[in-house]
Amino acid sequence: MNAQVSINESVLELTSDGPRLKGMRCKNCGNHVFPYQGGCPKCTGSDVEPVLLGTHGTLWAWTIQGFPPKAPPYLGETDPDKFKPYGVGYVELPGEVKVEARLTESDPTRLKIGMAMDLTLVPLCKDDDGNDMVTFAFSPSTKGDA
């Protein structure tokens, strides 16, 4: 089996306990942002720290990507005959931030605002060394309410 590699370790860390998103927390006002940045858009302060964001949340908004995105920048399948639609949404991580992410579900009848979601990974492509490059996604929760 090939090794999994993150699309970008500075935003998505593959830990032994599963994937984690790397965000920012403002030490002054407590506001969170994803990905990490050097200043707070809420209080305008710059006393911020990197944090690993939570992995469970609720679906806040969603759509289905119905056509292949352009490459570059897209690293996944762009052949119209092989492309499969995928969900995209904002997942609200309690007490932190709403993160935009791919969804593993692409059937509009199975997506509902407010449903519980868990962080997971989806494959994108092979990297130059033949490893499986992955990015983050949320899937409908198997653990009940977030």
């Binding site: 699309i7 998505l12 995105p69 897209y74 690293l75 992410a101 994108l124």
Partner: peptide, 10 residues
């Protein structure tokens, strides 16, 4: 690193 935002299909 890589353009993860567009690269991921967002």
């Amino acid at each position: 690193g890589r353009d993860w935002y567009g690269g991921s299909g967002m």
